Amino acid sequence: MGKTANLIKDFFSSSHYAVVGASSVPSKYGNKVLKWYIANNRPVTPINPNETSIEGLQCVPNLYSLISNLNHTDVSVSVLTSPKITKAILEEANKLGIKKIWLQPGAEDTECQDYANQVGINLISNGPCVLVDGPKL
C-alpha cells in the first residue's frame, strides 16, 4: 500500500468528518463531496460561514466552531476552497490539533503542502478526490 493509500485509510478511521467549503449549490463540488459523506453514512458537518444549513445538516462557520460542538478532535476534514483560503484552514486545523486533512483537487498549492509538512499534518493532496478514491475503501 502506497503512502497516499495509507493516508486515505487513516483519514477514514475518524469518528467525524467535516467539509470546508460545503455548498448548497448541487452542481458545485462542495455539495457533491458533502453528499458523498451523507450517502456513505459518515457523520459529517458542513463548514460554510455564509450558510446555516446544507443538505439538511446544520452548518458551522469554521473549524473552531466544529471542535467546540464535538468536544473532540478525532475529525477528518475535506477542504474545497481556493489555496489562499486553504492555508488559513490548515493553520486553524493545526492550532486545534486536527491532523487529517484531504485537500480536494484545486484546493492545494506548494505553500499549503510545505506548511502541512512543517507542522505534521497528514495531508492528502495533489490529485486524489474523495469522490473517486473514497469508494475504494
Rank of each mutant, 00 (worst) to 15 (best):
Y37W: 10
V60E: 02
S53R: 04
E51W: 04
Y64Q: 11
L63C: 03
I67H: 00
N48R: 04
Q58L: 15
G30H: 06
N40H: 06
K32G: 04
Y64S: 07
S65Q: 10
W36L: 14
N71R: 14
N62A: 09
Y64W: 10
D74H: 11
N41G: 04
K32F: 09
E51C: 11
Y64D: 06
I67W: 03
V33N: 00
K35A: 08
L57W: 03
L63Q: 01
N62H: 02
N69Y: 05
W36K: 01
S68T: 13
N50H: 12
Y64H: 11
K32Y: 02
N69M: 14
S53K: 09
N50T: 15
T73L: 11
N71L: 15
N40Q: 05
P43N: 11
G30M: 12
G56F: 14
N41D: 08
N50S: 10
G56E: 10
T45D: 02
T45H: 03
E51N: 05
V60G: 00
S68R: 03
W36D: 00
V60L: 13
T52W: 12
V60R: 02
T52F: 12
G30Y: 02
N41K: 07
Y37I: 13
I54D: 02
L34G: 01
T52Y: 11
L70T: 07
C59M: 06
N71A: 15
S53M: 09
S65K: 04
K35E: 07
Y37T: 07
I67Q: 01
I38K: 00
V60S: 03
G56D: 11
V44T: 00
Y37V: 07
S68I: 10
K32T: 08
E55M: 10
C59L: 09
K32A: 10
N40M: 04
V44I: 08
I67V: 14
C59T: 05
N31R: 10
N40V: 04
L70W: 09
Y37D: 02
T73D: 11
P46G: 11
N31L: 11
V60K: 03
L63Y: 01
N31S: 15
A39C: 05
P61Y: 13
D74E: 12
